[in-house]
Design a protein around this nucleic acid. Sequence first.
DNA 1: ATATATTACTTTTGATTTGATAGTAAAAGT
DNA 2: ACTTTTACTATCAAATCAAAAGTAATATAT
Lengths: 139, 139
Amino acid sequence: MMSFLDKIFRCDCPVTSAMDIIGDRWTLVVIKMMLLEYKKTFKEFSESDESIAPSILSNRLKMLEKDGFIRKVKVAHNLKTNYYILTEKGLSLSPVIIELAFWSHHNIKRFDNPIVNVKDKTELFNIIIDRYKSNTAVL
Amino acid sequence: MMSFLDKIFRCDCPVTSAMDIIGDRWTLVVIKMMLLEYKKTFKEFSESDESIAPSILSNRLKMLEKDGFIRKVKVAHNLKTNYYILTEKGLSLSPVIIELAFWSHHNIKRFDNPIVNVKDKTELFNIIIDRYKSNTAVL
DNA sequence: ATATATTACTTTTGATTTGATAGTAAAAGT
DNA sequence: ACTTTTACTATCAAATCAAAAGTAATATAT
């Protein structure tokens, strides 16, 4: 399994290299589940509307961990459940996800989420990240 | 060939639906070539650093046209060359691409482009779109 | 006018990725 | 002790991707 530290990029272009990392059908979707829907466990990801197959989910979680976007943690008195949480690097993708959400809201389908009404985007990023952090503070 | 008007989305989520449209290794890369590098012809796309295969390029251009992101035009006195230009809908993706560029600049590889120094992003989007339009005004 | 080069593709074929289904193993609940 | 839950792994068919070669129309050079 490769992390993007040793990934061979198609070329030197930063945008293209970004697509080498997140340019597939699932990577940003899983990060979105975490960032905006506060999903944390394999089960929660599995049961989401997207119906991600367990083999794909397992693979993406491993990749995301290798690339440093997420961390896998356990809580005391529960040896079974793994909790996946976004790292600062994972959170750094929130502007991209939010721009995608805005774009989709205006071009594909309405987003029933108060975030589309916030005017100042920089402030919005902070709100979303703060919410995420308070939601995962216990972990 | 399907356009996204009749595409079946995985679920109702706007972000996921956006990934159903642009979540692959090439779609945003081709749009980036147009928006930031002013590439316009099949030949120019083919000769770019990314080394896109002609079959993939052909397929993506068709999809992008079907989905209304680009238009294919010819100029007078040249029956051979096709020029592909971004529509308003295609240009509406520029905030997403620019956020990707910023993210990559800070997390993967430096972006040798003055855009990374512009402070106000809304203003930046306008600058990029204006530049693109003046560059394609003749078409 | 003819030959060569250019542009824009399509076709073919093989490799890789995706995704549905089934199965396994350890921990937790009853 | 038995059942359920959680977190996966394994298998395999289908879809997609990608490299290479081939084709066709237009444009340019001689």
